[in-house]
Computed example of a mutant assay.
Amino acid sequence: MSEHLYKQQAELTQLIDRYSGEEGVNVTAVPSLYFIRRSHTTGPKHSIYKPSLCIIVQGAKEVWLSQERFRYSPADYLIASVDLPVTGQVIEASPDVPYLALTLEFTPSQILEVLHDSEIRVSKQENAKRAMYVSPIALPMLDAVIRLARLIENPADVPVLAPLFTREILYRVLQGPHGGTLEQLAIEGSSTYRIRDVIEHIKNSYTSSFRIEELAETANMSVATLHRHFKEVTAMSPIQFQKQLRLQEARRLLLSESTDAADVAFHVGYESPSQFSREYSRMFGFPPIEDIKRLRTK
């Protein structure tokens, strides 16, 4: 690691440490920028990653997308280019040296604006790519991230400068070795763009059953092509994707409300409580009621 890169990471570590007073996710004065603190390693946590850039400055984390593992640390950054149900686990953290990280969420329209205003050559290839990847962090990107993070200390500058620094960060990502993944997300008509439409459709109506032919029509693809591209982007089938959304929402409802597991099963779209219990146990390791009791007593 170069001396300049080391100094930049040290400054970013101090900023995140100073402005992440709470355990977990901390909102900042910069829209779409979040600081994360964990003073202990964690068990697997299920969540939905929005399109975002994630950078760790202290500690390490593993993220599972279906059966695929992504491990990253201060030497890397992680990109999620579409909404993805994942399982994350902080694997290096302690009270003395807490896990510290940031997440910057972005939109496809922001990617498209950068492509329009830059000389980045847009790839015309039609092959969909995995919507999550880890890549080594470089100094130009870290410089831009530092400038964005510093705005927390000058809130009056946020409305003007935050969009500029965010564009610069996205420009650096697009210039990186996996920039084509983000390009395809923003280019209308690309395979990834059309899979994103299918993901939105599943997200907005995850409690309802669907016919795969309807999804294929949404994507303007054959059923076989949809299956292939959807799995390439998300590492899972459309049915598996919907199942993850249903079970994550079911767990959230069970944790936040005093409600019956069967009622929750019906609420998230299951017709059979026994099937719900089986699939819940398979995903979270325990039947619904036992899992919630375990979580509440932690």
Rank of each mutant, 00 (worst) to 15 (best):
C54S: 15
E153H: 05
G189W: 04
V160R: 10
A261E: 09
L112Y: 14
D260N: 11
S81A: 15
P98E: 04
R69Q: 12
L65C: 09
S277Q: 15
V27P: 06
A186C: 08
Q244P: 00
L226R: 12
G59W: 01
S39H: 00
S109T: 11
V173M: 05
E279Q: 11
V97P: 01
M1K: 06
E290N: 08
E3D: 13
I169E: 04
A162P: 02
K129E: 13
F165H: 12
L100Q: 06
S2G: 10
P287C: 07
L174G: 02
D291F: 05
I146H: 09
E200F: 00
F266N: 02
T207D: 05
V158T: 10
I289L: 07
R38C: 03
L174C: 07
A60T: 01
P31I: 04
E68M: 07
P108M: 01
E68K: 11
I292D: 04
I289A: 15
T42I: 00
K129L: 14
I111K: 09
I56A: 09
L84Q: 09
L102M: 04
L182Y: 05
F266G: 07
P288I: 15
R246V: 11
I199T: 08
P98V: 01
K203N: 15
E214S: 14
E214I: 15
S66Y: 05
S209Q: 08
Q242K: 02
K50C: 02
A144E: 10
S20K: 00
A138D: 10
V198T: 12
E126H: 07
R294H: 10
T13Y: 08
R147Q: 14
R294Y: 04
T218N: 03
P238W: 06
T192V: 11
N154D: 13
E213K: 13
S274Y: 03
I202F: 05
Q244D: 10
Q9K: 11
A149R: 00
A144P: 08
N127E: 12
Q244R: 11
H46L: 04
L245Q: 00
E214R: 15
L253S: 01
T42H: 00
T107K: 09
A250N: 05
H201E: 08
L115N: 07
E62W: 01
F241Q: 08
F266Y: 12
E11L: 13
G189E: 02
S208D: 14
A93V: 07
R211H: 13
V82A: 11
Y99Q: 10
P136M: 03
T192F: 09
R38L: 00
P44W: 09
I212F: 00
L226E: 07
G21W: 02
V82G: 09
E113A: 13
G189D: 01
V90Q: 06
T181Y: 01
T207L: 12
